[in-house]
Design a binder for these strands. Structure first.
Lengths: 203, 203
DNA sequence: TTGACAAGTGACCAATTGGTCGCTATAATG
DNA sequence: CATTATAGCGACCAATTGGTCACTTGTCAA
């Protein structure tokens, strides 16, 4: 990703922090992995902690750049089919973008040891994702595509199970095919329950 | 919990592994915390790894003793109110039993670094919990209390969001009151959707 | 009483690890 | 061309940590 050494260090550090944890990350190996000596790191960062914070800053900036402002969010689908497609498309990104995968891994494994990780985990896993769909569902209800209900509750009921399966896939990536099927089945079931069959040609 | 030194070591080790991770766990401090010297640990276990495995063995045994056999499972509720009560009661245990909390924390933070943690996490967070409710919902459908649907799908749609909120509570226990409210609201909403209003006196 | 054994202690060891320092080489700058 | 800032290196340091060992103490059985 990054081209400067400073950026490359963050790339490598994200991988190592995610895979080995903060304590398990070894600056010698980290540097050696990119053909550097450990002391070279100290030209760019003050300490291990400094690298950790820089990784986090970059992570948060990345998150904001993708989901931060309302303009970045997808426009509400015009039909239930579009909702399905949109969901699977967002999921495809979420499940395969190396950086996002590592972010999740890092947040999960360090959430109890680092304050920033703790708060970011709640944002990323729970509230952030939910809010996106709250707006989408609210609009779809206004448009009569979705059954009238509490959009916030539906968004939660929709995103939480998907998030669980994404975590499952992070943990056991060899089961990806099966997991995607389960997500598709869940989304279809959800749409069958909450989609307005009058506007769509019934199930 | 345990009274023998061997058991006490496991109690302390579970706490330390959960809070500090495997790498972050220090045998000196672990021993000192229980008024022992580090070398005393080696009278009971061969190595740090040996302690880790013993903690895990005990965790799995504990899990099996609670959820392992069908007889241990709750009998299906006779009404939607009973389902609500049963769920909140199980939740009360899950959210407050110190050992179970530490187990979750351990599984979450070590799932990518240890094979046993990986598999046990999937069982504990996903399939195990879901299977319990699959049986319950199937029976409730047979009894006409619940709308006919795929019990496995409903169990997943029911347990996954609750599990997410339990994780949230592990992470930010100071928000427990709010989280319990959210769970109650979710369960009530779920019942409103899937409960059979003919058998119950409608909403 | 004696001998065996279980449980515990503190000193010690070797490996690892975050961090510092002085030195070098390259490239930009006056 | 001389100078200076930048980026890199390897040696070194002190602290930490898993693990070993010789030794002590108390208990129980023969």
């Amino acid at each position: 990703m990054g081209n400067t050494t400073k950026e490359k260090i963050l790339d490598a550090a994200l991988v190592s922090f995610a895979e080995n944890g903060y304590k398990g990350t070894n600056l010698r190996d980290l540097a050696a992995g990119m053909g550097l000596s450990k002391s070279a790191l100290y030209r760019h960062y003050e300490s291990k902690d400094d690298i950790w914070n820089a990784v986090f800053d970059r992570m948060e900036a990345y998150y904001v750049s993708r989901f931060g402002s309302p303009e970045k969010l997808p426009t509400a689908p015009k039909s239930c089919e579009e909702l399905f497609d949109m969901t699977m498309q967002m999921l495809n990104f979420t499940m395969h973008d190396k950086r996002v995968i590592l972010m999740r891994q890092l947040l999960l494994t360090e959430q109890f040891r680092d304050e920033r990780a703790r708060h970011f985990a709640t944002l990323h896993f729970l509230n952030g994702t939910k809010e996106i769909y709250t707006k989408i569902f609210a609009e779809m209800m206004d448009n009569g595509i979705f059954r009238k209900d509490d959009p916030d509750m539906l968004a939660f009921a929709y995103t939480a199970p998907i998030t669980e399966l994404v975590h499952y896939c992070d943990r056991e990536p060899e089961k990806e095919a099966e997991i995607i099927q389960r997500i598709e089945a869940f989304v279809k079931h959800f749409i069958k329950i909450y989609g307005n069959s009058e506007k769509n040609h019934g199930e």
